[in-house]
């Protein structure tokens, strides 16, 4: 626990120093997504038949959760290369390094939650008991970020190809996942059929659906749980067998 608080301090400090010479500091973390959501929200609710009150909350929650997910995924492949000095010093374990990286992504997310609060009040969305379920969803999402960062970190240290593959996939995944479109809409019908096979959709659903007052489907819970359990099992195997070779690969 003591170690964790040290790592949290390290994460926050690195985050703070990064913005030290800027005028508005960490507000930059908010500005990008706000601009994106504003522009797309206004534009899409003009052209489509769905009202802004339906589309904008969907877009805002979806996009900010996506930023968290893609932060985990794209960051994971280079996590040990970026911390080469720490890996080769031996003072921080691989798990420490992964923890700092995951926490940095979460820290960005925590800032961006502010945007969701504004959206919630603006569109006067109701907070019900079921809304709390999205916190469970968020916890599961973060847990998956941990194993993924470790697993992709190990593979990515050995095969630098992984970061190229992942970057290519994430660009497509953003469009294939209902973030800037609604899954029920007729225009998304073709994509909709493939949604079951899109893990990103399910991970987004467990956070987003409860907030929008929708029920999370049983299939989604099953897929997300399976991912979590399998992910940790496979990562454990990789870590035990290959973890000690990381210093040689970075």
């Amino acid at each position: 626990m003591n170690r964790l608080s040290s790592l949290m301090y390290m994460t926050y400090f690195q985050f703070a120093v990064q913005y030290r010479k800027t005028m508005i500091g960490p507000i930059w973390v908010l500005l990008g997504p706000t601009l994106f959501i504003l522009t797309l929200g206004i534009l899409f609710s003009e052209v489509s038949q769905v009202s802004a009150a339906v589309f904008v909350p969907h877009l805002a929650i979806g996009f900010i959760c996506w930023t968290l997910v893609s932060g985990f995924v794209t960051g994971s492949t280079t996590v040990f290369q970026r911390s080469r000095a720490q890996v080769l010093q031996g003072g921080m374990s691989l798990l420490d390094i992964v923890a700092v990286d995951v926490m940095r992504t979460i820290l960005h997310f925590l800032h961006q939650i502010l945007i969701l609060v504004v959206v919630f009040f603006w569109f006067d969305l109701s907070w019900t008991y079921y809304s709390w379920v999205s916190l469970i969803g968020l916890l599961i999402l973060v847990a998956n970020g941990v194993w993924l960062t470790m697993l992709f970190g190990i593979i990515g240290a050995r095969y630098r190809d992984l970061s190229e593959i992942v970057n290519a996939i994430m660009r497509i995944a953003f469009l294939a996942t209902p973030i800037i479109w609604l899954p029920s809409e007729r225009s998304g019908g073709v994509m909709g059929a493939f949604l079951t096979f899109n893990p990103f959709y399910h991970f987004l659903e467990v956070v987003r659906a409860p907030l929008l007052g929708q029920t999370v489907a049983m299939d989604t819970w099953l897929i997300v749980s399976a991912f979590t359990i399998l992910g940790f099992a496979v990562t454990g195997m990789f870590y035990r067998r290959l973890g000690e070779r990381i210093p040689l690969w970075v």
Binding site: N2, M10, F13, Q14, R20, K21, G91
Partner: peptide, 26 residues
């Protein structure tokens, strides 16, 4: 020599950062 050293941070902050990255507690 540059482990945990951040040019934008002060000397004192760098003591903490380097120390933490060497595995010392807060």
């Amino acid at each position: 020599i540059s482990l945990g050293m951040n040019l934008e941070a002060t000397g004192l902050e760098n003591i903490y950062m380097r120390g933490l990255q060497m595995g010392y507690g807060f």
